[in-house]
C-alpha cells in the first residue's frame, strides 16, 4: 500500500534525523576582545564533527560579524551586538576559514571531521 510505504518512509526519516541530531554536538565560540575564544581561552582552530553546530557569541561591547567564503561552506551571519549569538551547522567534512569582516585579525579555522 502506497500510504503505508510513505508512512514507514516518513517514520524512518524522522528516526534517522533524530539519531543524527542526537549525535551532533553544540559548541559555543565567543568573540571577545577581538579574538575567538573557547571556554575563556583564545583559539585560532577548532575541530568539530560533521553535523555539529557552532554558536558564535559576541562578548564585546561593539558589533562583530562572522563569515566564511571557504569552498567548504559559504555564509555571512551579518553584524550582531554584545550578548547575541548565531549558529552555523557544519554539515560536510573539510576545513572552513571563518573571519570577522569588521576585524579581519579575528580568524578561526574550523576543521570538520
Amino acid at each position: 500500500m502506497r500510504i503505508k510505504q510513505v508512512f514507514v518512509a516518513s517514520l524512518a526519516s524522522i528516526f534517522f534525523a533524530a539519531a543524527g541530531l542526537a549525535g551532533a554536538a553544540e559548541h559555543t565560540v565567543d568573540q571577545h576582545e577581538k579574538a575567538f575564544e573557547k571556554d575563556g581561552k583564545k583559539i585560532d582552530k577548532i575541530s568539530v564533527k560533521v553535523g555539529d553546530t557552532i554558536h558564535f557569541k559576541n562578548m564585546d561591547p561593539w558589533f562583530h560579524n562572522v563569515f566564511s567564503l571557504s569552498d567548504l561552506k559559504t555564509f555571512d551571519l551579518g553584524s550582531f551586538p554584545k550578548g547575541q549569538s548565531k549558529p552555523v551547522v557544519f554539515d560536510k567534512p573539510g576545513v572552513a576559514e571563518v573571519e570577522c569582516a569588521i576585524h579581519p585579525q579575528m580568524q578561526l579555522e574550523v576543521e570538520v571531521k
Binding site: N65, D76, G78, S79, E99, A101, I102, P104
Partner: peptide, 10 residues
C-alpha cells in the same frame, strides 16, 4: 573594503 572582502557589511 568590499573589493577585498565581498561581504555585505564591507
Amino acid at each position: 573594503r568590499f573589493a577585498k572582502k565581498a561581504i555585505k557589511s564591507m
